[in-house]
């Protein structure tokens, strides 16, 4: 057989690369906290060079450090918000699919309620109402992102309940717990993990979104949203690097999460298992 890198190995490669990139950003961010805040007017407005790969801003702050620090904050928020959402989604999904019509009705109504309001608007509302800052953003993102995953899990459980092998298991005298653990969990787990990973990019984008609009993190935080909104003022004066590099890094982070989710899905999903 030809020695060729097969699809699965390639997927794993992308997966590992994404994970490495994201952990590097996180770890780097925690070390660069101090550097990101240092202002030094002797080096202000330097365009990208070897010493300052992303340049410096009008206060002489190192943009590379700020960007990485900002991203690590974003990822942190993403992890918190996505985890809270995922747990909520899982519980609500299972409740709605197993506890009868009434419970299902309430959960579906809640989903429709949250989904009926524009995402951004609801996020801003929750964020402002809970006092902005890190807490506000996490709360806001968590409370708005559980819907799609809940729907997915609920649909999946409903479908599983109709499967022949589930009905047969009940006839063989198996209880609800057995069916849930042996028949449903193995099918739900991959869906859940992939859904969880794919929540991150959403959460990150929304976090930078509201911060950009001025409703999120406070101004002294080196958050991506803040960086971008401040850079807006200086763009017209030709300081392109202030927006370009942080922007690219944000996109890269989001793409990394998507690649992670996608490769995971393909690796776990039997339908595409032999690609």
């Amino acid at each position: 057989m030809k020695k060729k890198i097969n699809g699965r190995t390639l997927l794993l490669f992308w997966l590992v690369l994404s994970v490495l990139f994201l952990t590097a950003v996180c770890i780097g961010g925690s070390f660069l906290d101090e550097t990101a805040r240092v202002t030094d007017f002797s080096r202000k407005n330097i365009s990208p060079c070897i010493q300052y790969p992303f340049g410096t801003d009008w206060l002489g702050r190192d943009m590379f450090a700020r960007t990485i620090r900002g991203l690590s904050i974003s990822i942190l928020i993403g992890v918190c918000a996505a985890s809270v959402s995922a747990v909520a989604a899982f519980l609500l999904g299972v409740v709605s699919a197993t506890m009868g019509k009434m419970a299902d009705g309430i959960v579906t109504w809640l989903i429709d309620l949250v989904m009926g309001i524009p995402h951004m608007l609801l996020l801003i509302l929750i964020c402002v109402a809970s006092g902005r800052g890190l807490k506000g953003v996490i709360l806001g993102v968590a409370l708005t992102h559980w819907t799609s995953l809940t729907r997915l899990i609920r649909g999946e459980v409903l479908q599983l309940k109709e499967q022949n092998y589930v009905k047969i298991a009940y006839k063989l005298g198996k209880g609800r717990w057995y069916v849930a653990m042996k028949h449903m969990a193995p099918q739900l787990f991959p869906q859940f993990v992939v859904g969880l990973v794919l929540l991150f990019p959403h959460a990150i984008l929304h976090e930078s979104g509201i911060t950009f609009l001025g409703f999120g993190l406070s101004n002294e935080q080196p958050a991506i949203g803040i960086i971008l909104s401040e850079a807006m003022k200086y763009l017209v004066t030709g300081k392109w690097w202030l927006a370009l590099f942080p922007g690219i890094m944000l996109v890269l982070t989001v793409i990394c999460f998507y690649t992670m989710g996608d490769s995971l899905r393909k690796l776990i999903d039997p339908a595409s298992a032999h690609q």
């Binding site: 057989m1 097969n6 699965r8 190995t9 794993l12 298992a273 032999h274």
Partner: peptide
Amino acid sequence: FLQYEKGFRQ
């Protein structure tokens, strides 16, 4: 058919 065995061997 090209199929995956356990893990990454085809």
